[in-house]
């Protein structure tokens, strides 16, 4: 089975999650996958198998806060929101991502 080319690069998942939470405030896991999918113009798809372990790790690292709450449809869901630490982490990850993409595109252009 070939790999799908819209897999999210390792290490960028937390950047995407942090950014999504920054943009939209509190969200549950499912909303996060949909949001990233739509926001990326359906180019990126978040694997559930990566998302939930990542969310738990980020929660333990103190980047996000999680609370149980009720959705509009009345279902119990876990809502994630950004912490101060998470905001700082987002700045760091965004910078390093921009440095990387700049570097890669320059290399592609001139190599």
């Amino acid at each position: 089975m070939g790999k799908r080319n819209n897999d999210i690069l390792q290490g960028t998942l937390s950047l995407l999650v942090l950014r999504a939470l920054e943009a939209r405030g509190t969200m549950h896991g499912y909303a996060l996958t949909s949001h990233i999918h739509k926001a990326s113009a359906e180019l990126l798809r978040v694997e559930e198998g990566s998302l939930y372990p990542a969310l738990h790790r980020m929660e333990q690292d103190g980047w996000v806060r999680a609370e149980w709450g009720e959705t509009e449809k009345g279902r119990q869901a876990r809502f994630y929101s950004l912490t101060d630490k998470g905001s700082k982490q987002l700045v760091i990850e965004r910078e390093s991502w921009e440095r990387l993409t700049k570097g890669v595109s320059r290399a592609l252009r001139y190599a």
Binding site: H28, G29, E48, Y52, R75, Q76, R78
Partner: peptide
């Protein structure tokens, strides 16, 4: 709790 969260995800997808 984990079970509940993942179940919620599937329900949302089914919807």
């Amino acid at each position: 709790a984990i079970d509940a969260e993942l179940r919620f995800h599937i329900e949302e997808r089914v919807d």
